[in-house]
Design a protein around this nucleic acid. Structure first.
Lengths: 220, 220
DNA sequence: TAGTCTTGCTACCCGGCGGTAAGTGCGGAA
DNA sequence: TTCCGCACTTACCGCCGGGTAGCAAGACTA
C-alpha cells in the first residue's frame, strides 16, 4: 500500500503533484473545489472529495481554508465579481443603447458559457439559505440590475422601482435563456442566440412608453 | 414533566390537535412540511422540525411518508402542477397573443404571490441535484416554455430551437421579475407590475422579425 | 550530517439527523 | 368489561461528514 508514485488512484484533474508552495497549492485547491462544487452542489460535496480531487489529504485543505463555507465563499466571490464586471463593462463600453443590450445579453451568455460551468455556483447554488451566500448572490444581481435600471430610468422617465422591475426582467430573460441554451447543448450558435435574445429585449425596451397609464394610482 | 395539556411548547401553525383521521393528518403534515421547507430549504429542514411544527412526533411522519425525499416530492409535484396549469390556462383562454402575454405574465406573478411562498420550492429548491427533483422542476419549466414556443413558432416562422430560446426568455423575464417584485416587498402594485412586464415582453415578441439574417448557417 | 521548518499524512472524534423498535392509551365492538 | 386495533410516544441506533491531534518526511542551512 502507499507505493510512493505511479499508478495513483488519484482523481481526474489535479492529480498528485508532490509538494507545492502555498500559493500554488491554494490555487489548485480552489480549482478542485470548484469542480466538485459545480458537479455536486455544496451539500453533496464532501471535503474528502475535494481533497481527493486535488490529490491531497483533508487537513491540507484546512491549512488553506478555515472551513467548508469559507472555501465556497471564496469561489462565489470570484465569480459574482466576474459577472458584475462583464455586465458593467458591457454597458460602459458605449452609449448606444441597442449595442448595450446586445453586449449585456452577450455578457450573460459568456458567463454561462465560461470555464467549468462556474456560473452554477452563482445561479444554481444550493446554499442560498446561508445568509452569507444569499447576500453575495443578491448583491451581484442587484448591481447588474441597477446598472441597467439607471439607463432605463434616465431614458424612459418611469419611476425608479418601475425601472428596476423592467431591468430585472431583462437580466432575467438573459440569465434564463442563457442557461437554457447551454442545457440544450447550444442548439443554436451562440452568436445567433445572443442576437435573437437581444433583438427580443431591444424591441421590448427601446422607446418604452413614457409614463401615462401608470398615473392611475398615487404610487411614487 | 409531560403535563397532559395546556401551555404546550408547540410551534406556530398546526399546534397540537389530538388524534386525527389519516387523511386529515396527512394534509396537516403536508402544510407543516411546506412551511418548514419554504422557510429553511430542504437541507436545513429536519424531520424533527416538521414533526414539531405539526405538533406530532417523528414516527407519525414516517407513517404517512416513506422518507424525507418523498415528502418533499409530494410538495414539488403539487406546485409544479399548479404553475403549469396557471400558465397553460392563461394561454388557452384566448387567441389574442397580446392578452396571452399579459395573462401568462400574470400567471407567474400569481404563482410567486401565492400561498405561503410555495413558489420557492420550485424556483429556489436547494435539492436540484437530486435527479427526481431536477426532473420535475425542469419538466415544469419545459411545459410552460413549450406552450409558448408553439405559438411563437407558428406565428413568426423561426425554427423550433429558436422559438424555444425566445419562449424561455419570456418565461425567464416573468419568473425573475416576479421574484424580484416580491423580494422588493411589492414596491409596485401587482397589477401595474404585470402590466409593465407584459408590455415589455409584448413589444419584444409581437411582429418579431421573420427569418432573415438567421439564414447564414445551416442550422435547422 | 544534524537541526529545523514547512508540507503533508493517518487516524480519530463527535454532533446532527434520517430512520426505527418497542411500548402506551383511547375508542368502539361483543 | 374485555379485547382489538389504531394513532401516537419515547428512546434509541448508525452513518455520514466536518473538523482536529499528532506524527512523518522532504528541503534548506550550516
Amino acid at each position: 500500500m502507499a507505493t510512493p508514485v505511479s499508478s495513483d488512484p488519484v482523481a481526474a484533474s489535479g492529480a498528485r503533484t508532490g509538494r507545492l508552495p502555498r500559493s500554488a497549492r491554494r490555487r489548485q485547491l480552489l480549482t478542485a473545489a470548484q469542480e466538485v462544487f459545480v458537479a455536486n452542489g455544496y451539500h453533496a460535496a464532501a471535503m474528502d472529495d475535494i481533497a481527493d480531487r486535488a490529490g491531497v489529504s483533508k487537513p491540507v485543505l484546512y491549512q488553506h481554508f478555515p472551513g467548508k463555507l469559507d472555501l465556497y465563499l471564496a469561489l462565489i466571490d470570484q465569480h459574482t465579481e466576474a459577472l458584475v464586471n462583464h455586465v458593467t463593462q458591457a454597458l460602459a463600453g458605449t452609449t448606444d443603447n441597442k449595442i448595450r443590450v446586445h453586449l449585456a445579453t452577450k455578457a450573460y451568455f459568456d458567463f454561462v458559457d465560461g470555464e467549468g460551468e462556474a456560473f452554477r455556483l452563482v445561479f444554481e447554488s444550493d446554499l442560498r439559505n446561508e445568509p452569507a451566500v444569499r447576500e453575495r448572490v443578491e448583491r451581484a444581481s442587484q448591481l447588474c440590475m441597477e446598472a441597467i435600471a439607471d439607463t432605463i430610468g434616465h431614458d424612459t422617465g418611469v419611476s425608479r422601482s418601475r425601472a428596476e422591475l423592467l431591468a430585472v426582467g431583462l437580466t432575467g430573460a438573459s440569465e434564463i435563456a442563457a442557461r437554457y441554451w447551454l442545457n440544450a447543448n447550444r442548439s443554436v450558435p451562440k452568436e445567433e442566440a445572443v442576437g435573437l435574445l437581444s433583438t427580443l429585449l431591444w424591441r421590448g425596451i427601446s422607446d418604452f412608453p413614457l409614463e401615462r397609464e401608470a398615473e392611475n394610482s398615487a404610487q411614487r
